[in-house]
Design a protein around this nucleic acid. Sequence first.
DNA 1: TTGTAAGCGTTATCAA
DNA 2: TTGATAACGCTTACAA
Lengths: 355, 355
Amino acid sequence: MNAKKALRTSPVAASAARSTIADVAREAGVSKATVSRFLNHRERLLTPDIATRVEVAIAALDYSPSPMAQALKRGRSRLIGLVVADVTNPFSVAVLRGAEKACQDAGYLLMLFNLGNDSRRETEAIAALTAYQVEGFILNTLGRDASAATHAARHGKPVVLVDRRHQGMQADFVSLDNAGAVQLGAQHLVDAGYRELLFVSEPVRDVSSREDREAAFRRFISDSAAEVPGLQGRTYESDVDDARGLDQALHSLRQRAGKRLPAIVSSNAVVTLRVAAAMARLGWHFGADVGLVGFDDTEWAPYVGPGLSTIAQPTDELGRIAAGCLLERLRGLDLPPRQILLSGQLLARGSSIPG
Amino acid sequence: MNAKKALRTSPVAASAARSTIADVAREAGVSKATVSRFLNHRERLLTPDIATRVEVAIAALDYSPSPMAQALKRGRSRLIGLVVADVTNPFSVAVLRGAEKACQDAGYLLMLFNLGNDSRRETEAIAALTAYQVEGFILNTLGRDASAATHAARHGKPVVLVDRRHQGMQADFVSLDNAGAVQLGAQHLVDAGYRELLFVSEPVRDVSSREDREAAFRRFISDSAAEVPGLQGRTYESDVDDARGLDQALHSLRQRAGKRLPAIVSSNAVVTLRVAAAMARLGWHFGADVGLVGFDDTEWAPYVGPGLSTIAQPTDELGRIAAGCLLERLRGLDLPPRQILLSGQLLARGSSIPG
DNA sequence: TTGTAAGCGTTATCAA
DNA sequence: TTGATAACGCTTACAA
């Protein structure tokens, strides 16, 4: 198209091939070692004259070192592996976003592996990422297969678990304070006058955050029973393809409630959506017919029904802190595994007003 | 024997070090070349006896080749760079999901770079990804800075553009058939009886999909004016932090409508959410007060107000096809750039019933 | 059919 | 302070 471009790239292969450290060395009339030193040990050990020559050559050739070659040599790749259970889950995405930012700021790139909720791929994910020499892992997995992550840890790679603990795994763990959050949400419903509560979750088994939340809910009920007359609570596991089951669960919830007010605590955004679907099928209204507080403050929560009351997780922070923990370990911090719990925030909207 | 060797063979660190091709060669009593051949040229050129010995050794040492070293040697990395404008946008995530699946199935890993809607980071993204020797790019960027992508293409790396075209860029392009989709949505509103239409979009300039949709909307209005008495249409650009402006736009929409029915076509899920917020502020109801059809069929669309009518994009397909195009190019396919347009699907719900 | 050796782009260890 | 040179883990002529 333009002759200018053609001129600029006159040496035939110049535009196609990345320039290497050897090119720079030749251009500057020094050895590769000197160029490498200039790059890695910046100011030290360099004659000003030589330094500037190298600097000029680097600029002239638009040289930047190959991370691949560096990785091979140093054994460090500036790569961090991120495994998420399900990119479709807004929570995962939000965390991903926070983590990505922190990693990039620290000069690391993120390699993403999405499990698509298939726990069998967990091992595969860790293996692939390990092969690429990622320096550490941020894991938000299903947790069925602790062995995979343990394997990673045994290879000396630091691991940070987000939201979901693995049994007996020695790793930093960053999560919402689930117990506190459940307490917050359930208490809010009680304060609003609801007395017959139902905790709705995805299958709880082996997913630590679900277990924690359910356990906290049970504890809340038994702890509060004394002070709050008529308070009752049950739990229900909702399955993806059992809409009817959920409908029935809601029916019996109202039945049990009798004259008392029934309400739901939903354990994440996915479940909240299912509950919303059920409510629509039944023709019931949030707040008046059944109260609701749901985990995860999605952007759409304010516009569903009278507005859904939610417990917001500090997702961005979770991601940032998880990445931060990892980066600290990569910088050599040697501490026993930490548990970092962040508190949730209650956002009261129409769905928790008996109206 | 240096300390390194000692470390290697000490039982403690034994589990920590990945085994290399040299280890396998030693174990099998053959040369590295033979192991390499076994790996790369499978059946050919191998004595059964030797082949099995290698196979056993590989299994025994749990060996897998280092993609980094392979990349360095071959110049191919089995990596694909994915740049998304905004991981927060559900559309981006959905595409990401489709693309990731296809890439993984083909043995490629995805390197993710999120722009966070900051167009200045586009160059940075491409540079970082290029440095890691990604073999190709899937780009869903803002499109301000075509030079970045062009740069990539000039380096001989195939590029696929998703949803957003870059001006004058020679690359495969995969997208929704925006013109058809707008027609579908607008016609639906007209059929439902709405006559005063407003197309609401994020700032249109330089983002091809937004431009296409707006242009299609304008065309629809002028084309239909003759047959549909009283049909009028305008466009409005909504800014993130100008909620008041949007409120006013809705006000004047109703004013202009007079006795005719007013409706909105919203150009993506983000805008739809903003419109929902405005409607809530104004105390208006979808369908009855103002009709709506919105781009992007999110999971929450059915539960906002009377259900939001949407135009669903085949997001998964978009991602899959984009990845497919790239993989074809990587396999050597040499064709002029293709444009692949997929049609949207209208999902009619309460928000387009004047009720 | 198999082995030897060079080299991909770096960094690190030596001498000089 | 700088420069050869040997790795890092792999592939691939070229020899045997």
